[in-house]
């Protein structure tokens, strides 16, 4: 089956995005490949091979798209799931959802125009292209698009946000590393499931170890938000001694 080759990134020994420790220690959905049917194996393992060379996006669009998709899925470290490459392949092959909102062009054109718009906003607010911005400045800019109601550079902002997150999440959560991160059992044919029910596991599934952590769910999320905010402040201070407020002013004065 060639699993040894395809279970990259072998160099890090990791099998999650960013090599982050998982809540399901020891669980690796790819260890189950021998129990999958051949058609499914072909489909899933192809995502672990080198993605094809880009065909759809220009280099400028690629730069915006890589940074944007990494923002949406919080990919800050290698090994990364190649979201931009996966979206590029879909658009190059016309594997879109087909339909589009009446107030947006078809998906490929909507991506190109929205990437150019994001770059324009970056230059207006910071004087540099989106991809060259520090991480948290990118975060701020992306947030302004999500917060926007109505028109944004001639595009419906809400529909653009929907398009970005739909394609980015489809790529990211189709990848076995992401399945390992969330404890998803992955393909289940021809084996199926034998142990249905609450807290019922198959022998090859791994229980969530974070249950031992008494911190409530909401608080955990808030902690993630606080870590995010603190890191952002640190980064802005190191770059700009006047502090984050100065950057915020630049952004808001541009609106």
């Amino acid at each position: 089956m060639g699993r040894g080759i395809l279970r990259r990134p072998a160099e890090s020994g990791a099998n999650t995005p960013g090599g982050l420790p998982s809540r399901f220690p020891g669980f690796d959905v790819l260890a189950e490949v021998d129990h999958w049917d051949a058609a499914t194996v072909g489909t899933v393992l192809s995502r672990l091979t080198q993605p094809p060379a880009l065909r759809f996006f220009s280099p400028d669009e690629e730069a915006v798209g890589r940074a944007l998709f990494d923002q949406i899925l919080d990919q800050r470290a290698e090994p990364k799931i190649p979201i931009l490459d996966m979206v590029d392949a879909r658009l190059a092959e016309g594997q879109t959802d087909g339909w589009h909102y009446a107030d947006l062009p078809e998906d490929g054109e909507a991506f190109k125009r929205s990437f150019a718009a994001l770059d324009e906003d970056a230059v207006d607010a910071y004087g540099v292209r989106f991809a060259s911005l520090p991480w948290y400045d990118q975060t701020d800019l992306v947030q302004t698009v999500q917060d926007r109601d109505g028109d944004w550079h001639g595009l419906a902002a809400g529909d653009i946000w929907d398009l970005w997150s739909r394609y980015a999440c489809t790529a990211f959560y189709s990848h076995p590393w992401a399945w390992n991160e969330i404890g998803f059992g992955g393909p289940a044919y021809p084996r199926g499931y034998k142990n249905l029910g609450i807290n019922a596991l198959e022998p090859w599934e791994a229980a969530d170890q974070s249950d031992q952590d008494p911190v409530g769910r909401g608080e955990e999320i808030e902690q993630a938000r606080r870590r995010h905010a603190e890191a952002r402040t640190r980064e802005l201070r190191s770059k700009d001694p006047t502090g984050p407020d100065g950057v915020g002013d630049r952004l808001s004065s541009d609106k």
Partner: peptide, 24 residues
């Protein structure tokens, strides 16, 4: 056997994906 997979993204071809415009 050959055309379907136990996989969400890999099932794209099951859907009508010819162009359509959705409005209102």
């Amino acid at each position: 056997d050959d055309d379907w997979v136990s996989d969400e993204a890999g099932s794209h071809d099951l859907y009508w994906t010819d162009p359509r415009v959705t409005a209102g």
